[in-house]
Write a protein that binds this DNA or RNA. Structure first.
Length: 561
RNA sequence: UGGGGCGUCGCCAAGCGGUAAGGCACGGGGUUUUGAUCCCCGCAUGCGUAGGUUCGAAUCCUGCCGCCCCAGCCA
């Protein structure tokens, strides 16, 4: 760690590593790996693992490999490896010169399998799928030995070679580790380590007809790469005896330590690639990078920053306890990052026009606005002002509640950085909807300061009607309507929030927000929230489109309830 | 008694036998040309529960209760 020593809280994995280091295990090296399967896009849960693995490596001056766990050609695709690399890089992590793939070890793995057969620890089983299941027993009853369990080493070798050569159909045979069919741990009941799949692999093409299973591949890949701490999620805890068995039984370079932690659950969303894929495939969302998705690509498009995501992963901690994190934690992280970093701007989402009757019809002037209220170094800008300006429809109320300090008939309010105005009259259409608000202004208050020292309680934002840029603004809300979508009535799909996307088409922006050189800046639209230009929409259609990253905290709406 | 895990504030989480950190949320107050930010203050005589060991227990022991994971030729 070079720069600022931020107080990172301890966790049980750091404790384990500290102890290992104290005992000089692994020559005091720390080597971790992030091992995604390229069968989907990465999500915030993966970010937790990425931050953990790469973070530990950084912290202990070790290294972290990026390894694609690509042993199931039927589900995997190169587009996923591309997106995964983009996401990891965007988060700010560096996997060095080497991009690892389990498929690069297929030959080595094959040799290890032969070693296993030769030592009498693996056999070719010719039972069919349902028979294998039957022989496996149940959670409470032991399994029974396969009739093929005692094939000779020669026969096994011969059969396995033929499997490799593609002489069999899918499913005809499998290679199994010979362990213990009566083990209380089902993973130890002669687990399958190779299966026949006559399909093309995205990287090895048609070179192989057999593919190794996770339990065989993962531990050996870790060992080949000299991993010291192999960190995975809780559901693999039961697999650890097998992980250790393979490495103990074979002659391997080293024996990494598998450590399990609890995967991330976030309220109001789902965190499984299968479910996210389903949302994409069934068009419930607009692709993997839909800004409502908990995917890294979705969050990136929405406007989240790598810093906020990393801070989030730091705050939630690492334990073995199942937990579900409140959205508020994530929101707090992005607000914290953006509060100091985001330049301010003014935008009106739901415009209503006000006419300042005592302001000259043809007059226009520029007012000076700070780009950040607490950071003078961010400078100022000039904003055009004229007789008609748009303000937020709900910044005016005819019958205001107590403590209301915005615009209402007879009450003064400040147009931020411009003038103090007072509402004189309201014009409505035949349905009683307000179409225009008539105000007067105090010419002595340019910039928003009063000459006589009178206090103005409220300040509202505005955009000059003559200079406004029209824009589409997309407001996002939680993807699901209940905290734990999997536990509600029906399936998780039934719990989707129908109001997760709200598209506003008639928004008014101050001119600066339309300039193309400001395309990649995250802004705070004052009094509303943080926004980021949507790359895809803005580029494809030419329409100016902003995504809301997160709202500002709002104690007023809260207080009213 | 199938096996493996986990139970500390509403949500996370430190703590590793010496008398309950911190964050988010929440409540109260102050500053403020964003009802934002910022700044103060408050927020577990209590660590799933019942016993036991000890001068002393969230930490050690025993029982009980609750929750999660495992029977893919997925990872």
């Amino acid at each position: 760690m070079s720069t600022e020593e931020k107080n990172t809280p301890s966790n049980f994995i750091r404790n384990i590593i500290d102890n290992d280091l104290a005992e000089n295990k692994n020559n005091s090296n720390v080597v971790t790996r992030f091992p995604p399967e390229p069968n989907g896009f990465l999500h915030i849960g993966h970010a937790k693992s990425i931050c953990l693995n790469f973070g530990l490596a950084q912290e202990y001056s070790g290294k972290c490999n990026l390894r694609f766990d690509d042993t199931n050609p039927e589900k995997e695709d190169d587009i996923y490896v591309k997106s995964i690399k983009e996401d990891v890089k965007w988060l700010g992590f560096d996997w060095g010169d080497t991009e690892y793939h389990a498929s690069d070890y297929f030959e080595k793995l094959y040799l290890f399998a032969i070693e296993l057969i030769k030592s009498g620890n693996a056999y070719v089983c010719s039972l069919q799928g349902d028979q294998i299941r039957e022989y496996r027993g149940t959670l409470k009853e032991p399994g029974k030995n396969s009739p093929y369990r005692d094939r000779s080493i020669e026969e096994n070798l011969d059969l396995f070679e033929k499997m490799r050569k593609g002489e069999f159909k899918d499913g005809e045979h499998v290679l199994r580790a010979k362990i213990d069919m009566s083990s209380p741990n089902i993973n130890m009941r002669d687990p399958i380590i190779y299966r026949i799949r006559n399909v093309e692999h995205q990287r090895t093409g048609n070179e192989w007809s057999i593919y190794p299973m996770y339990d065989f591949t993962h531990c050996l890949s870790d060992s080949i790469e000299g991993i010291t701490h192999s960190i995975c999620t809780l559901e693999f805890e039961d697999h650890r005896p097998l992980y250790d068995w393979v490495l103990d039984t074979l002659n391997t370079p080293c024996h990494p330590q598998q450590i399990e932690f609890a995967r991330l659950n976030l309220e109001y969303t789902v965190m499984s690639k299968r479910k996210l894929l389903e949302l994409v495939d069934s068009d419930k969302v607009n692709g993997w990078d839909d800004p409502r998705m908990p995917t890294i690509s979705g969050m990136r498009r929405r406007g989240y920053t790598p810093a906020a995501i990393k801070e989030f992963c730091e705050r939630i901690g690492v334990t073995k306890k199942d937990s579900s994190i409140e959205m508020g934690v994530l929101e707090s992280c992005i607000r914290e990052d953006l509060d100091s970093a985001a330049p301010r701007a003014m935008a009106v989402l739901d415009p209503v026009k006000i006419t300042i009757e005592n302001y000259p019809e043809d007059k226009e002037e520029l007012v000076i606005a700070k780009n950040h209220p607490n950071d003078p170094e961010m400078g100022t800008r000039e904003i055009p002002f004229c007789r008609e300006v748009y303000i937020e429809r709900d910044d005016f109320m005819e019958e205001p509640p107590k403590k209301y300090k915005r615009l209402t008939i007879g009450q003064e309010v400040r147009l931020r950085y411009a003038y103090i105005i007072k509402c004189e009259n309201v014009i409505k259409d035949e349905n009683g909807n307000i179409t225009e608000i008539i105000c007067s202004y105090d010419p002595e208050t340019k910039g928003g300061k009063t000459q006589d020292g009178r206090k103005i309680k409220g300040t509202i934002h505005w955009v000059s009607s003559r200079h406004a840029e029209n824009a589409e603004i997309r407001l996002y809300d939680r993807l699901f309507s209940i905290a734990n979508p999997d536990k509600g009535e029906g399936g998780y799909i039934d719990n989707l929030n129908s109001e997760s996307l709200n598209i506003l088409k008639n928004c008014k922006l101050e001119p600066m927000l339309a300039e193309s050189e400001n395309r990649d800046i995250r802004y705070q639209f004052e009094r509303i929230g943080y926004f980021y230009r949507d790359k895809i929409s803005s580029e494809e259609s030419g329409n100016l489109t902003y995504n809301r990253i997160v709202t500002l905290r709002d104690s007023w709406t809260k207080a009213k309830k």
